[in-house]
Amino acid sequence: MKTDAAILSAGAVLILLILAIFAGCTGAAPEENETPYATTTTPIAGVNVLRVATTTSLENTGLLAELERVYEDKTGVDLQFIAQGTGQSLDTARRGDVDLVLVHAPALEEEFVNDGYGINPRCIAYNYFIIVGPESDPAGIANMSPVEAFREIYAAGTNNTPGVVFVSRGDNPGTHAQEKALWAEAGYDYEEEILDSGPWYVEAGKGMGDTLILANEKNAYTLSDEGTYLSFKDQLALVPIIAEGAKLLNRYSAIAVNPEKHPDVNAEEATNFINWLISDEGKELIGDFGKAEFGKPLFVPLYAPDCTEPPFNCTCAEPVATA
């Protein structure tokens, strides 16, 4: 977003003045009060705005700010990110309130595209979900597969083993979807057997960063994406207990909102942005992000032909045709 501090400050000062004058003569008759409000300037002009609903895990790592800076300098497009959970982002897009989504829940994405709301899905990058927990590992899940680990945490948690707590995002983002999938894989009915099954299962109802902080305070296990965990590592005593494994793959995709459903979306800029994200320039930027700070990249860009094969099975290279 290009900031226009001058206009903003002019607007603020103008209103303050009007308010002050107005306050000084509250005795004036109401009809004298009709100072034309329309003369105050609005901070965003009708420039080329592209609105992207995205996930808190991307925002919390700082990647979005970096993408925004580079892309805006390059194109002059005003890129606006609204960070929500993946579930909410897709809903925002269904309503046509944004032009593009950047999310990480393949099953929900597929539904979004199949329902006709999303077009031109392109996978961009991936990393892994990790199960983090206290170093003492009270449930003893180190070196297990993710599914076994979930079974073990469940068993320990429902037996009230001291110190075993699992914090769930609980706000229906991609990470939460992944967590539910793991519970299902482990053979539990999420609604029936996991929710409200005891004090060991804590629903945070917050973004990834907040959830990690909460898990840290409670010395609990939680499922996190690798990127957010790495960028919060300094603040946490939690350690990764289970990492890697295809079951824990975390794939990020960009999907444009279908202009046939919502004619006033900025379809042209959505296409341009997707094409830039899958260009070498975009992928290098994503692949380099966090290298200097964390010693390893937070996200691994996807290249053809790897992306078309399992476990990814998505399109990552063909540019979207411009209208």
């Binding site: 501090a5 903003l8 603020a12 303050l16 009007i18 109401p30 009060n33 901070p43």
Partner: peptide
């Protein structure tokens, strides 16, 4: 910028609300 935007939004809202609420 954030501070000015806060001021802009809340002062505008107060101003409009005053115009409506006082009469």
């Amino acid at each position: 910028e954030i501070t000015l935007r806060s001021l802009y939004v809340s002062l505008s809202a107060t101003f409009v609300a005053t115009l409506i609420a006082l009469p």
